[in-house]
């Protein structure tokens, strides 16, 4: 196992700029295993996605965004439970476990998800999620290899942090964090508009995105641009014409 982790890290370290190491790890993982996409996400201790560090294709990206938007799904559960969440047949099992997430599966282009938590002792760093466009289990040896990729991803994140130094973020992780910035800013604004905590404000933002079938990112941009406010009316928000 350790030898395999070292092998993975060595092979992605061959040439190329450091910032793309997480991307290369995900790309190699797609080649090595019987899967079609990979996503590497940072997670906070309470299972809030801190952003995608790397993603290999559109369906994988869609799945990562959907889970962040809904606050539910295999990646969220893997991080919270600190255990791999293996879903070889999403179409038949996802709806029961994650109603909203499951409802999106038929059109998502993904039929199986294998989510592995990245953790060091008590600390949860993120999730490595493997996606496939057809249903089916990972074989025993593939599962072992997937765990080796998860360990390699953990080592890589720690190495990036080591290079960045305390209280800083590595440039390779900045993109992931920047991506989510507007959502967190909007969360802050909504918390003032509604007089609630940021946690509840995020739930309201999520609910609104779900109810109106709009991406959370778009709503956040509208809130930050002051074209939209959240309120306690029946509809839950007001659109402002000519906002900044």
């Amino acid at each position: 196992m350790l030898a395999r982790v070292a092998e993975i890290l060595n092979s992605i370290a061959d040439g190329g700029p450091q910032a793309s190491l997480p991307v290369r790890l995900c790309q190699e993982c797609v080649v090595a295993l019987s899967i079609t996409g990979v996503g590497l996400t940072l997670m906070t201790a309470d299972g809030l996605s801190g952003g995608m560090v790397a993603v290999t294709d559109r369906p994988a990206q869609g799945m990562e965004e959907l889970q962040f938007a809904l606050g539910q799904g295999p990646c969220v559960d893997a991080s919270r439970s600190r255990r791999p969440v293996l879903q070889p047949d999403l179409l038949s099992t996802a709806v029961a476990r994650w109603p909203e997430f499951g409802a999106a599966i038929p059109t998502a282009g993904v039929r199986a998800i294998f989510a592995f938590p990245l953790q060091v002792g008590a600390f949860r760093l993120g999730v490595l999620a493997l996606y496939r466009d057809t249903p089916g289990r990972l074989g025993d040896s593939e599962l072992t290899d997937a765990l080796a990729y998860a360990d390699a991803a953990t080592t890589l994140l720690l190495d990036l942090q080591d290079q960045a130094g305390a209280n800083r973020e590595h440039p390779a992780l900045t993109g992931a964090l920047d991506n989510r910035a507007v959502v967190h800013q909007a969360t802050g604004m909504i918390s003032v508009q509604l007089g609630v905590s940021p946690t509840e404000a995020l739930l309201r933002l999520r609910a609104h995105a779900y109810a109106t079938d709009r991406p959370m990112h778009d709503i956040s941009v509208a809130v930050v641009g002051r074209r939209m406010r959240f309120d306690h009316s029946e509809y839950g928000s007001t659109t402002i014409k000519g906002g900044r």
Binding site: L42, T44, A45, L48, G50, Q119, V120, G121, F123, R124, L125, L157, L158, Q161, D162, A164, A166, N167, R168, E169, L173, L177, R180, A181, H184, Q185, A186, T187, G188, M189, I190, S191, V192, P198, V224
Partner: peptide
């Protein structure tokens, strides 16, 4: 290192929320 990474992530989220507030 894991603690530092988690702290960096948390403080970044906190900072963006505070900007919004």
């Amino acid at each position: 290192l894991a603690e530092q990474l988690q702290a960096a992530l948390n403080s970044r989220i906190l900072l963006e929320q505070a900007k919004g507030v």
